[in-house]
Design a binder for these strands. Sequence first.
DNA 1: GGCGAGATTCTCT
DNA 2: GAGAATCTCGCCC
Length: 186
Amino acid sequence: MKLPRKFYSRRTDIVARDLLGCVLVHRKGSKRLSGKIVETEAYRGYDDPGSHAFRGRTPRNSIMFGKPGFAYVYFVYGNHHCLNFTTEEQGTAGAVLIRALEPIEGLESMRKNRKGRSLTNGPGKLTQALGITRDQNGVDLIGNMLYVLNGDSPEKVFKTNRIGIKRGAELKLRFYNKGNKFLSVI
DNA sequence: GGCGAGATTCTCT
DNA sequence: GAGAATCTCGCCC
């Protein structure tokens, strides 16, 4: 029940919404770390001033312009990694930021990675919990190391402003499961 | 439990 | 050389 490439090859905001309830899996050696996606944000291209792709293609963001269904991992604030999935047809920029997960498998490893602190309720935290770094940048999500499984759609999806950006903050492109305990911001 | 600041490195101008 | 799609800790309620 792995999500196929065509799932990602759609409008970015639709993909962001449909990813809620699906299960992100990262295989690390013999371990399997996974969690249900409960919060996402959509980032588009030239029409979205909050997006890395707004000012056109650069070496860093070129993966957002490439094929859908790939991991885009970048480093921010000197401390943290963020995990995105590329969307839209090849040649059109788009990515979905994964902001929060509900842990399912590999809790022990996550706790170790996070030194006992809260595990996956924020984009920088969940990458650390799952052991995702720039090594995973450009990984194909149709492969066997990092992928997403089909899940049940949440009963209620809420849509609000995106978090932590200055430009384009007024766009309502953040999606989350109402009432979930693992959201980054309530 | 909330607010404010510091951390620390990469990318583009 | 600035600013960034964030987190944590310390201080003060």
